[in-house]
Design a protein around this nucleic acid. Structure first.
Lengths: 185, 185
DNA sequence: CCCAAAATGTTAGCTGCTAACATTTGACCA
DNA sequence: TGGTCAAATGTTAGCAGCTAACATTTTGGG
């Protein structure tokens, strides 16, 4: 039952300081040096914890649950629908306690063009994983790529409107975003 | 019938030099200074023509034809389908003479993570225009946003696979990408 | 041909980010 | 408890992207 390692504590301090400063003065107006100083640490140390300024807001953990949920969709459905419904299922099953923190982060990202770009690039892992699953299940690569990209785009957009809106539940927002894409004729 | 203005000539020289250097040594390994020198000009001048290094590859002209094509889709269809079919129609009508240049650019973008992010951010104008059209035609904003994002994601992904593939026609590639998304139940 | 405006050059500086080396701090064990 | 080795941090130096302010040249139209 040791207290969190020093590394973890520093990381947290940096993330907190960054969130506060970004919200106060905006992302671009905030210097990595400022963040570091506010966290009681050096600029160099910041970059030892995060490879780039943006990464203090964007960690994109590869999510095995999501991939499994997609794999569990009926193989007869077109890849696009399998991906969409898989994402839907995975998020429905997700706990929402961290919602407030997520909202702060997403709100900042949505409001900063540079971060929107970074966000998109940072979904690379997830996108690759989805493509992998779809291809394993027999979809052609080009098809899988488009399906993954479109579904993730919908998901991210849903996140943005959720973050900006006042009080909706995260799961509901995701569901509504996916409804837009899963058109039933 | 005056020859192209000096500004235009310098811009072209910069774009050409950038394309060549990027292909030879990669995007990140190429310096703005190098590009400028290869174009017979100063680094400062580069930034007077393009606000950022990426922008030498990514100009995103707002496309009125595309918006019109979306507006022309049946109002009864769901926004997502209207956007997808509008994009389909607009690209089908497009001339393909510039395909070789486009391919060089897109190939570079597809191969460079940093540029993929920038590409995504640079579609912002188009995305906003699509959202505007859909909303004007009665769609709720949140719905329009998701529809526009998903369709553009599919389009861009289609562009990427087209650029990497050998000889397909651009229009065909786009069509196939949109086929993935427009699932008919 | 001439001259205002446009295009370019110069210098200086800030911020993000990296490398290489020195120093401190902390966790674990004798 | 005290020591020890590795992890975490600090320092310095430097490059690349990008901006600002001011000086200089070039252009194209009257």
């Amino acid at each position: 039952m040791s207290r969190p390692s020093k590394r973890a504590r520093t990381s947290d301090a940096l993330v907190q300081a960054a969130l506060d400063l970004f919200e106060q003065q905006g992302y671009e107006a905030t210097t990595v040096g400022e963040i570091a100083r506010a966290a009681g640490v050096t600029e160099m140390t910041f970059f030892r914890h995060f490879p780039a300024k943006e990464q203090v807001l964007l960690d994109d953990p590869y999510d095995p649950g999501l991939i499994a949920a997609i794999g569990a969709q009926p193989l007869d459905d077109p890849p696009f629908l399998r991906a969409a419904r898989g994402v839907r299922g995975a998020w429905r099953a997700l706990p929402e306690p961290e919602a407030p923190v997520i909202r702060r982060r997403v709100r900042l990202i949505a409001a900063t063009p540079a971060l929107r770009g970074a966000m998109w690039r940072s979904t690379g892992n997830t996108e690759a994983a989805i493509v992998g699953q779809l291809v394993d299940d027999g979809a052609p690569v080009e098809v899988a790529r488009v399906a993954a990209a479109a579904v993730l785009a919908a998901l991210v957009t849903g996140l943005y409107t959720w973050a900006e809106s006042a009080s909706t539940s995260l799961a509901d927002a995701i569901e509504r975003a996916l409804d837009v894409i899963e058109v039933r004729a």
